[in-house]
Measured scan of single mutants.
Amino acid sequence: VLKALERTRQLDIPDEKTMPVLMKLLEEAGGNWSYIKLDNYTALVDAIYSVED
């Protein structure tokens, strides 16, 4: 979780936006981090930006 938060902080995305999206992605992935961690957490960042749209 810390590495995911560090990555999104680099992009000026607050933890308050990151955590709900991260928890949803983890739930959808059955707790499997490998998809979320791919390409420096690209799936997480993309999911956060899609929620903002």
Rank of each mutant, 00 (worst) to 15 (best):
V1K: 06
V1F: 15
L2T: 14
L2W: 06
L2Y: 08
K3I: 09
K3L: 13
K3T: 09
A4F: 05
A4L: 04
A4R: 02
A4V: 06
L5S: 03
L5E: 03
E6L: 09
E6R: 05
E6T: 09
E6V: 07
E6S: 07
R7T: 06
R7Y: 11
R7W: 09
R7C: 09
T8D: 01
R9P: 02
R9E: 02
R9V: 02
R9H: 03
Q10W: 07
D12F: 12
D12E: 11
I13W: 04
I13Q: 02
I13D: 02
P14G: 06
P14F: 05
P14N: 04
P14Q: 04
D15F: 06
D15E: 03
D15A: 03
D15K: 02
D15V: 03
E16A: 11
E16P: 05
K17D: 07
K17R: 12
K17V: 15
T18W: 04
T18N: 02
T18A: 15
T18Q: 02
M19P: 00
M19K: 04
P20V: 12
P20H: 10
P20G: 09
L22T: 00
L22G: 00
L22D: 00
M23S: 07
M23D: 06
M23L: 13
M23K: 13
M23R: 11
K24T: 07
K24S: 08
L25H: 00
L25D: 00
L26F: 05
L26W: 05
E27I: 12
E28K: 11
E28S: 10
A29Y: 15
A29G: 08
A29K: 10
A29T: 15
A29H: 15
A29M: 13
G30C: 11
G30F: 08
G30R: 09
G31A: 05
N32Q: 07
N32I: 07
W33L: 04
W33E: 03
S34M: 12
S34V: 10
S34Y: 15
S34F: 15
Y35N: 13
Y35E: 12
Y35P: 10
Y35S: 14
I36D: 02
I36H: 00
I36W: 03
K37V: 15
L38S: 12
L38N: 11
D39C: 08
D39Q: 08
D39A: 08
N40K: 06
N40S: 06
N40M: 05
N40C: 07
Y41L: 04
Y41S: 01
T42S: 15
T42H: 15
T42Y: 11
A43E: 05
L44S: 01
L44K: 01
V45D: 00
V45I: 15
V45A: 03
V45R: 03
V45H: 01
D46L: 13
D46A: 12
D46C: 14
A47M: 10
A47W: 03
I48K: 00
I48T: 02
Y49T: 10
Y49V: 09
Y49D: 06
Y49Q: 12
Y49W: 12
S50L: 13
S50F: 11
V51W: 14
V51P: 07
E52R: 10
E52V: 12
E52S: 12
E52P: 11
D53F: 12
D53E: 14
